[in-house]
């Protein structure tokens, strides 16, 4: 008998929480397929290692890239495999709560819940990521105070104000940390004439990327393929030029936070100033981002101590208290 599950189906990482047990799976949301037969060859970490390194007949993809479900069929197969791996079968029909970007369309929502039901879930409910994040980040959302969460993931940035267990204001954009990787890739191509893969770009971001000047900055050596000669070449990137390269996506992320603040009722402004805004999601770990948001919004920002797990823990809490928290599910409102 499989236990009820909560799933954070992120564009970058997938986490699964099992009722009564905790987080039982945490891996990249990547699937590798045989192009010809359509067979699944690998998922998760194994598939992630293949990105950009596959022979022609294999393709390793992130089906949720861009915060949207770009390929329904692959997404469905991923959900099915995921449920199988945590022990769901035709005979054990658990309830499942799935976190999705709040910007997804009605059609995408249906696709996700249908996929989960076809894969063996007795019931599949959706919950918005920032709502789950607020529960999981341990914010006092049971009180009549404004709690603002900012969730910066791989493909999306979602900010929400939550008070008394409900969403007061919400702002979501399909810009996230992957867009920062892409900006690094195109900068290096344009300014240094070399092509680098998305994983290399991500490494550069983690190693020296920043949204504002920080202490002890270092340079990074980057290896790629020279666009003119086609041969491998190494270039040195400075933190200043990476900051310049990623300024567009970073600014979009910050403007979306500002828009969420602007949508909030004035009564809550005080709460934000006193309590600050809470930053979760892997993208929020970019160096200097916290400081930059603080500077541009004049509101203090606090980092969650579990930025990558907050969402799945929040959804996990909803699975633990399923009946009492039914009202939080998308479509059940309020």
């Amino acid at each position: 008998m499989a236990r009820d599950l909560a799933i954070d189906l992120g564009t970058a990482n997938t986490l699964v929480y099992m009722k009564g047990k905790g987080i039982v799976l945490n891996e990249p949301s990547v699937i590798a397929l045989n192009r010809q037969t359509g067979e699944v060859l690998a998922t998760g970490r194994e598939a992630w290692q293949m990105i950009g390194r596959t022979p022609g007949y294999i393709v390793a993809v992130r089906p949720l890239r861009g915060g949207a479900i770009t390929d329904f069929e692959i997404t469905e197969r991923m959900i099915r495999l995921l449920l199988q791996r945590v022990g769901v079968s035709r005979f054990s029909r658990p309830k499942v709560v799935i976190c999705v970007p709040s910007a997804i369309t009605e059609v995408e929502r249906r696709a996700v819940t249908d996929a989960a039901r076809r894969a063996g879930a007795a019931d599949a409910q959706l919950i918005e990521q920032p709502m789950a994040a607020a529960i999981g980040a341990d914010l006092p959302i049971d009180e009549p105070v404004g709690n603002m969460v900012i969730d910066i993931g791989g493909g999306t940035t979602e900010s929400a104000v939550i008070s008394l267990g409900g969403i007061v204001a919400l702002e979501a954009v399909r810009v996230g940390s992957f867009d920062i990787d892409a900006a690094i890739q195109s900068y290096v191509r344009r300014e240094h004439g070399i092509a680098i893969g998305e994983r290399t770009a991500e490494e550069v971001k983690m190693a020296i990327g920043s949204a504002a000047p920080t202490e002890d900055e270092a340079q990074a050596e980057v290896r790629g393929r020279d666009l003119m000669t086609g041969l491998p070449r190494t270039v040195i990137l400075t933190p200043e030029e990476v900051r310049f390269a990623i300024d567009d996506p970073v600014s979009s992320i910050i403007s979306s936070v500002a828009r969420c603040l602007a949508k909030s009722p004035p009564e809550l402004a005080q709460d934000f100033l006193n309590r600050g805004m809470f930053l979760v999601g892997g993208g929020g770990m970019l160096r200097g981002l916290k400081q930059r948001i603080e500077k541009e919004t004049n509101v203090p920002v606090r980092m969650s101590n579990m930025p990558l797990e907050a969402v799945v823990l929040g959804a996990g809490h909803c699975i633990e208290h399923y009946d009492a928290l039914k009202g939080m599910f998308m479509g059940a409102r309020r």
């Binding site: 986490l15 905790g22 987080i23 945490n26």
Partner: peptide, 13 residues
């Protein structure tokens, strides 16, 4: 449970 579980923290950095 989130803070204790080793799986929860593993594959992030």
């Amino acid at each position: 449970r989130g803070t204790q579980h080793p799986d929860g923290r593993r594959e992030q950095r």
